[in-house]
């Protein structure tokens, strides 16, 4: 490689220059959140809300769970889009927000697991819940991958994949809690949440290839 080669590269890049519009990651993030909220609501309406939804909404623990998941989903979505571009050092400070909320959620789940037990998980191992879960999350996951690949150029692919996964999972979790009548934490957590964690581990391995640019 010589200076000549670098000059040739610069020539080639200048020849291929097209006007570009600076992207706004916050706007993209908010757009994605809006799309996912609409989609999750539509899927919940299509499947049908749980029968005892009105009664559940009056329960503090249920509302807390939904609100916590929503806060995690929103913050993780914004962080995903913020770190989808280079030079996002200032916004990296927000990374602990969804992670801390996620830790609170884990602690809450473990506490409930301790008091409620694992439930009838074996009987419902391969239930329709998984289908509903897939329905809730496949399209949002594809949408976030496409949006980030199209408008971003991340220098932190693994972290970005992690936050994208957290946001998709939490929105999916909210959707499932709206339609699934079973409140037992063992069943709800292991059937509706844990599969994403497993998927996320595999996604982590391909994150660099998935978000290559």
């Amino acid at each position: 490689m010589t200076d000549n080669d670098i000059d040739k590269t610069i020539d080639k890049l200048c020849d291929g220059l097209k006007p570009v519009k600076p992207c706004c990651p916050t706007r993209n993030g908010l757009l994605w959140i809006l799309l996912v909220v609409c989609y999750t609501s539509a899927v919940a309406l299509t499947i049908g809300f749980r029968e005892n939804i009105a009664e559940s909404m009056g329960r503090e623990d249920y509302v807390f769970e939904i609100m916590l998941a929503f806060a995690i989903a929103i913050s993780a979505s914004l962080v995903t889009f913020w770190i989808s571009i280079p030079g996002c050092d200032k916004r990296k400070k927000f990374m602990p927000v969804p992670l801390t909320l996620l830790a609170v959620q884990f602690a809450w789940m473990l506490e409930r697991l301790y008091f409620e037990g694992i439930g009838d998980i074996r009987e419902n191992w391969l239930s329709h819940c998984w289908m509903n879960t897939a329905l809730h999350t496949t399209l949002p996951a594809l949408a976030v991958i496409l949006l980030v690949r199209k408008s971003g150029a991340t220098v932190m692919p693994c972290w970005m994949a992690t936050f994208a996964l957290i946001s998709v999972t939490e929105f999916g979790w909210i959707g499932m809690r709206l339609v699934c009548p079973r409140d037992n934490v063992g069943e709800a957590y292991l059937l509706n949440f844990l599969p994403y964690v497993v998927l996320g581990v595999f996604l982590g391995f391909v994150a660099k290839k998935l978000f290559r640019w």
């Binding site: 200076d3 890049l13 291929g16 600076p22 992207c23 280079p86 408008s151």
Partner: peptide, 17 residues
């Protein structure tokens, strides 16, 4: 210079960001 070239190409690809 290999890395320099890689960076230049990356700057080109990520200019919109």
């Amino acid at each position: 210079d290999d890395v320099v070239q890689e960076v230049l190409i990356s700057v080109h690809k990520a200019l919109h960001t």
